[in-house]
Amino acid sequence: MDAWPAKKNKISSAPFLWDYSPAIPIIAAVISLSVISNFLATSFTDPGILPRAENIEVIELDRQIAEEHNPHHDPAVPRPRFREATINGERVKMKYCTTCRFYRPPRCSHCAVCDNCVLMFDHHCPWVGNCIGQRNYCYFYRFVFCLSVLILYLFSCSVAHICLLSQNMPFGDVMRKTPGSAVVIIICFFTIWSIFGLSCFHTYLLCSDLTTNEDLKGIYRKKRRAAVQTSTSSAPDWHNQEPKNPFYSGSLKSFTGRLFKSRLPSVLDANGYINDQPTIVIQVPKFPPETR
């Protein structure tokens, strides 16, 4: 192509690059569809919300706690704030949620924006308008990864468009004929750093089998804890041990497991019916007359 006819001067790079290879704009369209589909899936998929405990469940939980920690039913004894579970030899604390009224499972956290407990809570994303949790994290990662690839691809195509036109006309005329490509280059240049950095950060989280919430809190960070034992104590310094992630099973297994594992079913009621005033029936055992 030694000359580019004036009637074919377009703002978009796609018609120009189509003559070089139709695959160039087709690939951009496929990546764009992938970004949009994963964005919608992230926004409208239940992230793993746990329904709040009903009154009968709270009564049963209090009965079990009373048998375990308060056998004399002393009302002055408060409900334990934490419970412990052993996972792969490591003790994991489960905190009681006063809003949802149950002990949160491991890696579950209460979202202050959605006001719900979410399984494997990562963070609340305002850009998709939803929490990122166990059931939609794979869609979120694919959305961020495909978006970073799309930005790089659009940046490269726009630069190629301007460079090819610059071979046959002055650079000033190129800018006047293809202002869209210049705008795309500027937008991509200033957005790629944050999007590509976010993609790399979540790739690190996947390989480490961590969530954003766990990483920011430093729960399993490889840092030695501050020693609190006195110099006269001969007990082992367990405070100076490195905390281990009980869920980590290798970088490759963690990466593939969280991205390609089958999605767990939602535990929310599909009917959406909530009884605000449930009826609780307590059956009193009947004793024979001679045993009264």
Rank of each mutant, 00 (worst) to 15 (best):
3 A>M: 13
5 P>A: 03
7 K>C: 08
11 I>P: 00
15 P>E: 01
15 P>W: 02
20 Y>G: 00
21 S>N: 04
22 P>V: 06
22 P>Y: 12
23 A>H: 06
32 S>W: 12
35 V>P: 01
37 S>F: 08
38 N>K: 13
40 L>C: 06
41 A>I: 15
41 A>P: 05
42 T>K: 02
44 F>C: 15
46 D>H: 05
49 I>W: 14
52 R>S: 04
54 E>L: 06
54 E>W: 14
54 E>F: 09
58 V>C: 06
59 I>N: 03
60 E>I: 12
60 E>T: 11
60 E>M: 15
62 D>V: 11
65 I>N: 02
71 P>Y: 08
72 H>E: 08
79 R>Q: 01
79 R>G: 01
80 P>H: 14
81 R>F: 11
83 R>P: 03
85 A>Q: 15
86 T>H: 13
86 T>W: 05
91 R>N: 13
92 V>C: 02
92 V>F: 04
93 K>L: 14
93 K>V: 07
94 M>G: 01
98 T>V: 09
100 C>D: 02
103 Y>S: 01
105 P>R: 07
106 P>W: 03
110 H>R: 04
111 C>S: 02
112 A>D: 11
114 C>Q: 02
114 C>I: 10
120 M>T: 07
121 F>L: 11
126 P>R: 14
128 V>F: 08
141 Y>T: 06
147 L>V: 09
147 L>H: 02
148 S>A: 05
149 V>R: 01
150 L>Y: 07
152 L>F: 12
155 F>P: 03
155 F>Y: 13
160 A>G: 12
162 I>Q: 01
163 C>D: 01
164 L>P: 03
168 N>R: 10
171 F>H: 07
172 G>K: 14
172 G>S: 14
172 G>Y: 05
173 D>K: 10
174 V>I: 13
174 V>E: 00
176 R>I: 11
181 S>H: 07
182 A>T: 13
184 V>R: 03
185 I>R: 04
187 I>P: 05
189 F>P: 01
191 T>N: 05
192 I>E: 12
195 I>S: 13
197 G>I: 09
199 S>R: 11
207 C>S: 12
211 T>C: 11
213 N>E: 15
217 K>L: 15
219 I>Y: 07
223 K>V: 12
224 R>T: 08
226 A>N: 07
228 V>S: 15
233 S>N: 09
237 D>H: 06
237 D>T: 11
239 H>W: 10
246 P>V: 11
247 F>E: 04
248 Y>N: 02
250 G>T: 09
253 K>T: 11
257 G>I: 13
259 L>F: 02
263 R>T: 13
272 G>D: 00
274 I>C: 12
277 Q>M: 07
281 V>G: 06
281 V>E: 09
281 V>P: 03
281 V>Y: 08
283 Q>L: 09
286 K>Y: 11
287 F>H: 10
289 P>Q: 13
291 T>I: 05
291 T>L: 10
292 R>Q: 04
